[in-house]
Structures are given as structure tokens and as C-alpha cells.
């Protein structure tokens, strides 16, 4: 993986990154990806045993019994870096 690709990925992940770090990471990723690529041998080397994870299924419920509106608002907003009234505040988008 080259440094430019690392910078592209950092952009996707919304992380500011310098050229030097991208270069270092690109070398590390080569080693890591080389190692984890072993996993591709599983399909060919092992008989794939399906039917795992008994007891694993989606847990659904009906919407209902909501808590009273606004009772947690203040508690949550106390942690916000910026607020305006009961809203989180961000910079103008349009």
C-alpha cells in the first residue's frame, strides 16, 4: 500500500494526517496485510462447516413505552462541546 492510498483512507475516515505518518503507516500496513491475508487460505484449506451460531438471531421488539420526551436532554447536552438552546451546534453547512 502506498502513502497516497493511506492518505485517501484517512480522508474517508475523517482523520487529519501528515505525509510522514502516512508513509510510516503504509510500510506497517504491508506487514499487517501480508499477515492477515493468511485468512484467505481458510476457504481452500478447511472444510467450511456451516450451521454455526445456534442461538444467534435478530432480537426485535415493538416500538413502545418511550420515556417522557426531553427528560435526558439536559444530561446529554451537558457533554456537548457547543450548544444552542436544546440543539447541538455545528458550523454552517450551506
Amino acid at each position: 500500500m502506498d502513502a497516497q492510498k493511506v492518505l485517501d483512507l484517512a480522508k474517508l475516515a475523517r482523520i487529519e494526517m501528515g505525509a510522514e505518518e502516512a508513509k510510516r503507516l503504509s510500510h506497517e500496513f504491508d506487514a499487517i496485510l501480508d499477515y492477515v491475508s493468511e485468512v484467505k487460505k481458510v476457504s481452500s484449506n478447511l472444510p467450511l462447516q456451516r450451521g454455526r451460531m445456534e442461538g444467534v438471531y435478530n432480537v426485535m421488539r415493538q416500538d413502545g413505552e418511550p420515556h417522557a420526551s426531553g427528560i435526558y436532554t439536559e444530561k446529554m447536552l451537558l457533554q456537548a462541546p457547543a450548544r444552542e438552546g436544546n440543539y447541538l451546534k455545528v458550523k454552517k453547512i450551506l
Partner: peptide, 10 residues
């Protein structure tokens, strides 16, 4: 953390 986020994104 940066390393793993970027690896995960990849």
C-alpha cells in the same frame, strides 16, 4: 487508534 481505524476502513 488511527492505525486501526484506517486498516478497518481499508
Amino acid at each position: 487508534v488511527r492505525r486501526r481505524i484506517i486498516l478497518g476502513t481499508y
